[in-house]
């Protein structure tokens, strides 16, 4: 999805504002949102449960920038619970469960989903260390992890991290397009990405699934 979350290389955001002795959570509700988000996750199994990052990335750009990190998380968790029907809009507004609704059950995971993390799958690697590669120019409507600033750019495979499930989604944030494939650390010279604004000896390392890459030729 080409939206504001993909902000690498943008200008105009001003200085980086830091806070001395920053608390982990600035308000009690932030900690509750963080913990709720983690604890409701198993309830999404087997239900219509749009992807975490997809929901965040679907927030309209102006709203995304106005919201704080945990405001976005709250919006995301509330959205997933409403979409899945686990919580109704009426319950949400009232702050109490509908006495007639009954209590939901935990469901088993949908069959065929590969989930998250390093996989013990024997998949051949298409690219090898030090090989020149080009990031493909992909612009899907769903979630993906190919930042705009590397698309079409030349890099070099620095390391093969092994096999992971692709975390892309369809355009509705569902149906993980989770084919197992190698993830590579790809080195891009800073000037390949940013021209002469960048330092001549600096570099970016970006982790890219094999589907995001093609041979450099």
């Amino acid at each position: 999805m080409n939206s504001i979350h993909d902000m690498g290389g943008m200008d105009g955001f001003g200085p980086i504002v830091r806070e001395e002795n920053e608390p982990v959570f600035h308000h009690r509700w932030e900690g509750r949102v963080y913990a709720l988000t983690r604890l409701v996750k198993p309830w999404g199994r087997g239900r219509d449960w749009p992807g975490f990052r997809f929901v965040l990335e679907s927030i309209p750009p102006a709203d995304y920038l106005r919201m704080s990190y945990y405001e976005r998380w709250f919006h995301m968790t509330a959205t997933r619970l409403l979409v899945s029907g686990l919580v109704t809009g009426t319950e949400f507004e009232a702050g109490r469960a509908d006495p007639g609704a009954g209590k939901p059950d935990l469901l088993p995971a949908a069959k065929g989903s590969l989930g998250f993390g390093l996989l013990d799958h024997d998949v051949p690697a298409r690219f090898s260390d030090n090989e020149a590669v080009r990031a493909r120019n992909l612009n899907p409507r769903g979630h993906n992890r190919l930042p705009r600033y590397v698309r079409g750019r030349l890099g070099t495979v620095a390391e093969d991290y092994g096999v992971y499930a692709l975390q892309d989604s369809d355009e509705h944030g569902r149906l993980p397009l989770d084919t197992p494939q190698h993830v590579y650390s790809v080195r891009f010279e800073a000037r390949e990405l940013w021209g002469d604004r960048a330092g001549s000896r600096d570099a970016m390392y970006v982790d890219l699934w094999e589907d995001y890459l093609e041979p450099a030729r």
């Binding site: 604890l39 709250f74 702050g95 109490r96």
Partner: peptide, 28 residues
């Protein structure tokens, strides 16, 4: 609104208030 959502989820026995406290405490 966060409090309202938490109340609904606890009432539906989808999350346990003590487990929420534990996560917050761990990261704080």
């Amino acid at each position: 609104r966060v409090k309202a959502l938490e109340s609904v989820l606890v009432e539906k026995e989808m999350v346990d208030a003590a487990a929420l406290d534990e996560i917050v405490d761990a990261f704080e």
